[in-house]
């Protein structure tokens, strides 16, 4: 219930109406959106019980590892009500045709299997917020100073997921496990997304804000 309360407000993509449609516009819109979402994600992480008592260095390491998984999981959750469309933001819903026309097809095709996976499970909001926090705590950064403190954070979030399923989904005793088994696909999908945006950064045709660049470089 705490994670539900601290769940961030929606943010909007607000594509620049003066830019001509095409891949530069689409990528500029997504990079700008991602930069603003990162600010929100960093603020959100601080409200996860136990996160702020980690050292600053460990907080940074977890976020630098997991930020794209958190972004992707959020897009996927927003897209659960749609058919083969990705809801990057409420005002930026992309279908396959739009994705093709705006150079987003690789990303689109990479993310859809995850949408299908969570649709099959009918992931609920409570499960989404818990899994998002678990993805952060379970990010397998190579640079953790206090491994035991991070383990305690993982344990408390794991316990929250089990409590949730124990209370609400008693008809399927394996539901928590089924949700956790989606995390490898989330990591794989986020890695593809990072690669996609890293190659866009290298091409240099799309402006990127400093925080997004900083987080991309941390994954390089």
């Amino acid at each position: 219930s705490h994670l539900l309360v601290v769940e961030p407000e929606k943010i909007y993509a607000m594509p620049d109406p003066t830019m001509p449609d095409g891949d530069i516009k689409a990528l500029t819109t997504l990079c700008d959106l991602a930069d603003r979402e990162l600010v929100v994600i960093i603020g959100w992480a601080k409200h996860i019980p136990g996160f702020s008592s980690l050292s600053l260095a460990d907080q940074m390491s977890l976020l630098q590892s997991a930020w794209m998984e958190i972004l992707v999981l959020s897009i996927v959750f927003r897209s659960l009500a749609c058919e083969e469309e990705l809801v990057y933001a409420e005002d930026y819903v992309v279908d396959e045709e739009h994705a093709r026309l705006s150079g987003l097809l690789d990303l689109h095709v990479a993310i859809l299997p995850l949408v299908r996976r969570y649709k099959k499970l009918s992931m609920e909001r409570e499960e989404f917020v818990t899994l998002k926090a678990i993805a952060l705590a379970n990010s397998d950064s190579m640079h953790i100073e206090d491994v035991e403190a991070v383990q305690r954070l993982q344990d408390s979030l794991h316990e929250a997921l089990q409590d949730l399923e124990g209370a609400h989904n008693t008809e399927d005793p394996r539901r928590a496990g089924k949700l956790l088994m989606t995390l490898p696909l989330l990591r794989q999908t986020a890695a593809k997304a990072v690669q996609h945006f890293y190659s866009i950064k290298v091409q240099g045709k799309v402006p990127m804000h400093k925080l997004f660049l900083e987080m991309l470089e941390a994954k390089a």
Partner: peptide
């Protein structure tokens, strides 16, 4: 840390 100064600053902000 110098390389990741925005993340560092945002985490240090109290809000």
């Amino acid at each position: 840390k110098e390389k990741h100064k925005i993340l560092h600053r945002l985490l240090q902000n109290s809000t």
